[in-house]
């Protein structure tokens, strides 16, 4: 394994994993506690339209993904807050429309879409240096937003109605939170792919939740878990010659299920013992 790090692509992979873990660890906590997992899934999948547009108009598909993820976050925020369309319907509509647009754009670009698979399922080993820089910038933006709006996001996640009562602009902050999710999707897209993004947004945070009731500690733990999963999954995929993105997701999913399983068994055992 260690001799692998002399290669530039390996160093890039490690950097990408680190940056992805930071973004998904922090934003994932909000996604989990605010229960916007499927909404985030919808935003992630809608980015396919942007990837397709990038291929069609010959600009970077990552930039297309960023454009579409932000657009879909704002659309989602607007539709769920200002129209009568039920949230889960909006999730389905946006999800499917974004994907459909992507298929059409890629079709129009004469079907030539190199690396399409790496956008769909991720390939941490092929992240170019330019994307590493972009990921670092997005991470900084996310960290800055969370530091600046920490008390707002806490109130928004815990009790929106009370937030309104004490004069907080909840709709605007909700949009901002969804935009943060959108940026995180862009950070993660190269590592695990747009289809698997939602797993990295939820698994580390959901696991962290098992160990603490403090939201800041939960973020820190979730970043650490994200790193362990990314590097553990990368090592496994290297050792077993499997796709890296999918291996990372499967590893974290299995750990998460074991953790919740153990907790469940333990509380049952405790109930029995106290009975």
């Amino acid at each position: 394994m260690f001799e692998a790090f002399q290669f530039e692509f390996m160093r890039n992979a490690l950097m990408a994993g680190l940056l992805a873990s930071i973004a998904c660890g922090i934003v994932g906590v909000y996604v989990v506690v605010k229960k916007i997992v499927s909404m985030s899934g919808s935003i992630a999948h809608a980015t396919f339209g942007g990837i397709g547009l990038g291929y069609l108009l010959k600009f970077s598909p990552v930039m297309g993904a960023m454009l579409f993820s932000l657009l879909s976050a704002l659309t989602m925020g607007f539709v769920t807050r200002k129209t009568k369309l039920p949230t889960d319907t909006a999730i389905g509509v946006l999800w499917a429309m974004g994907m459909a647009l992507g298929v059409i754009f890629i079709g129009l670009s004469a079907g030539y879409a190199p690396d399409l698979m790496s956008y769909l399922f991720g390939n941490i080993l092929t992240v170019p240096a330019s994307d590493i820089v972009l990921m670092a910038v997005l991470d900084l933006i996310i960290i800055a937003l969370v530091v600046i709006f920490y008390k707002e996001f806490l109130l928004l996640s815990f009790d929106e109605e009370f937030g309104t009562v004490v004069g907080m602009p909840v709709d605007g902050l909700y949009m901002l939170l969804l935009c943060m999710v959108a940026l995180t999707v862009v950070v993660l897209i190269r590592v695990v792919g747009m289809i698997l993004v939602i797993a990295m947004l939820t698994f580390p945070a959901a696991l962290a939740r098992q160990f603490t009731y403090d939201i800041k500690k939960m973020m820190a733990l979730s970043v650490v878990f994200g790193m362990l999963f990314t590097f553990g999954g990368l090592w496994l995929s290297y050792a077993l010659n499997l796709a890296s993105g999918a291996t990372i997701i499967l590893l974290s999913g299995v750990v998460l299920l074991i953790s919740y399983g153990v907790t469940g068994l333990r509380s049952r055992y405790r109930l029995k013992a106290s009975a």
Binding site: V33, K151, L154, L155, S157, F158, D159, F162, G163, V166, R209, T212, Y213, D214, I215, M218
Partner: peptide, 11 residues
């Protein structure tokens, strides 16, 4: 929800 009584009151 990961929030303490003190944090809730602070809201």
């Amino acid at each position: 929800f990961p929030v303490s009584v003190r944090e809730v009151v602070m809201m």
